[in-house]
């Protein structure tokens, strides 16, 4: 049974992430984490006519790699928690059409990976499932055509804009006792809206949600930032990350060990991604390519991953609504901590 500490659910017998995989596209293959991906694809169209189908292919490649590493067939899956940025989460829907296991569709925008892992962990911790898959993705092209402009349209990005990652991440979770990286606690965030309306400054729109969830987490669990080897935010980018550090310092909880997945996935100085990466695939890929391997190796003992999402739509944006944000946190340990 999980223990409730404020908004945080702590698992005395932590379920584990037994296997994981990250796949990415061309820009990701030129980034600093390239060597740690399971697969990288320079042709991001996967030979499909539509980018939506290409994103589904990307997910399926990722899931195949994850299941292979976990040593199970797709028929062995008890449940999948998944979502993506496409309207009605269609990339995941079509992937699950092929996968065929029970499916819980999620929409948490760029926070989906933490949301999925948290739910899968909760199900596994209760012993409700033996093999739970959590995955998400984003595809630059599918996101551009849905949220911004046609890909061949000429436009200049503002310095605060972020680059939607073409990437996917998948995690296979099992109940306590199995080998893997333990999920020590999960925290579902509360929606925060501080009246940011600039769609080219998502990091700023999502920062208050990240700060709110962090404060809830530290208060609920009685921990401090320095109890962790690192605290990762999902995709705040350079602007949002700087704002988060400023805000947390103002709250009296400075974050000396904070890093942002959006700034890790790309080299913002040379890759022309403006303020950094974004998209559901950004934190998913960084989790699976960068964070989980280090926990597995024992290089880190305790890490907090906070994936942030912006919950507006094209319609609400055009209607002048501000951008609500959300952030879900997953606390991860190294294998010895879990036992």
């Amino acid at each position: 049974m999980a223990i409730r500490r404020g908004d945080t659910l702590v698992f005395p017998k932590p379920p584990v992430i037994a296997a994981w995989a990250a796949v990415g596209g061309k820009k990701e293959s030129e980034g600093p984490l390239a060597a740690y991906f399971d697969q990288l694809f320079t042709d991001t169209s996967f030979g499909e006519d539509g980018w939506e189908a290409a994103e589904s292919d990307l997910q399926q490649q990722c899931i195949s790699a994850c299941l292979r590493k976990g040593g199970i067939e797709r028929t062995g899956l008890d449940i999948a928690f998944a979502g993506d940025l496409q309207a009605q989460c269609t990339a995941s829907n079509y992937t699950l059409r092929a996968l065929g296991c029970p499916y819980v569709g999620l929409y948490g925008a760029c926070s989906t990976m933490a949301e999925g892992v948290a739910l899968a962990a909760a199900f596994a911790a209760q012993g409700l499932v033996g093999q739970a898959l959590a995955f998400t993705s984003s595809h630059f092209c599918a996101a551009e055509r849905q949220f911004r402009t046609p890909l061949d349209y000429g436009g200049k990005r503002t310095p605060t804009a972020q680059w939607t990652a073409t990437a996917a991440g998948a995690c296979l979770l099992r109940p306590a006792g199995a080998a893997g990286v333990p999920v020590l606690s999960i925290t579902f965030g509360r929606v925060q809206d501080f009246a940011v309306t600039d769609i080219n400054n998502m990091g700023a729109a999502m920062m208050p949600a990240a700060a709110a969830t962090l404060l809830q987490f530290f208060k609920g669990t009685g921990t401090r930032p320095t109890d962790f080897d690192a605290i990762f935010t999902g995709d705040l980018g350079e602007v949002g990350a700087a704002l988060l550090q400023e805000q947390m310092a103002n709250e009296g909880v400075p974050l000396p060990n904070h890093q942002d997945c959006g700034c890790l996935l790309y080299d913002t100085a040379t890759q022309q991604v403006q303020a950094g990466g974004s998209g559901a695939g950004c934190s998913a890929a960084v989790l699976c390519a960068h964070i989980l391997p280090r926990l597995q190796q024992g290089a880190w003992r305790r890490v907090l991953l906070l994936a942030t999402g912006a919950l507006m739509s094209q319609t609400t944006f055009l209607q002048g609504e501000s951008i609500p944000g959300i952030a879900h946190a997953v606390e991860l340990g190294c294998p010895e901590v879990g036992v």
Binding site: P159, T160, V239, L243, N250
Partner: peptide
Amino acid sequence: MKLNPKQYEEMTKRASPPSPV
């Protein structure tokens, strides 16, 4: 949280790099 939308607008403006005009 020690933040309100008005303060935050100021904070965001300060943190956001301007376009290289």
